[in-house]
Simulated assay, not measured.
Amino acid sequence: MTVQTHLRTIALAALLPLMGGASALAASAHDFTFQGIDGQPLPLSQFAGKTILVVNTASQCGFTPQYKGLEALWQRYRDRGLVVVGVPSDDFGGQEPGSAAQIKDFCEVNYSIDFPMTDKTVVSGDGAHPFYRWAADELGFLAKPRWNFHKYLIGPDGKLQSWFSTMTDPESEKVREAIETLLPATAPKS
């Protein structure tokens, strides 16, 4: 670590409490609940012990085909403990204008999505869902969603492990390797 990097780290650590980061630092992803696309609560605590990939999505985006890769990850790794959670959001370019029912139908019909989905959720700015504010506090300014299909990887212990930008394909080697390091070598026995 260079002296400049070390000084930046110290400065950021000093600023976190002033920016409301102190309480967020103690939290785990398992402390947050979304509203599911079916209108029921979707607590991340139900996935404790599993690896979670949380992705803000949109149905009318140039990156919408990433749904295919997200479903492929879900199918490939779910027996080993991966859960993909789709978080539809209309924050970027108004590219998720539909209702929960319309979003669900779109995802099922066009991409055969069967991983958990939330209701439409604000993921950026002052009104962002608490999970997204916490993730920004935990991983820093650069880790905030800048567009649709931003990805957060959460370990089985509920701690944020990494993030991947919109441009990073869900089936890229980078994403798959990060997921595989958090999963058991074989599927757990039931």
Rank of each mutant, 00 (worst) to 15 (best):
H6Q: 07
Q4S: 10
A11Y: 13
S28H: 05
R8F: 14
A13Y: 14
T5L: 15
P43C: 03
M19T: 03
G21P: 02
A11H: 11
P17D: 01
P41R: 09
A13I: 07
L12V: 02
G36P: 08
S45N: 09
Q35V: 12
F32M: 06
A26M: 05
S28M: 04
M19L: 14
I10M: 13
F47C: 05
L15H: 10
L25F: 13
S45C: 04
A22V: 02
D38F: 06
G20N: 07
L15A: 07
Q40L: 08
I37E: 15
L25T: 08
A26P: 00
H30D: 12
H30C: 02
P17C: 06
L25N: 09
F47P: 05
L18I: 01
A27T: 04
L16T: 01
L7I: 00
L18Q: 10
G39D: 07
Q4F: 13
L42G: 08
A24R: 15
A29M: 04
A27V: 00
G36R: 03
I37L: 15
A22L: 09
S28C: 01
F34E: 04
I10N: 08
T33S: 12
P43I: 00
I37H: 14
D31W: 02
Q35Y: 12
S45D: 11
G21M: 08
Q4N: 10
S45M: 03
P43F: 04
I37F: 10
L44E: 09
Q46D: 11
A14S: 07
A14F: 11
P43R: 00
Q4W: 14
G20Y: 03
M19S: 08
Q46G: 02
A11E: 11
Q40P: 07
H30A: 03
L18G: 04
G21S: 04
H30V: 00
I37P: 15
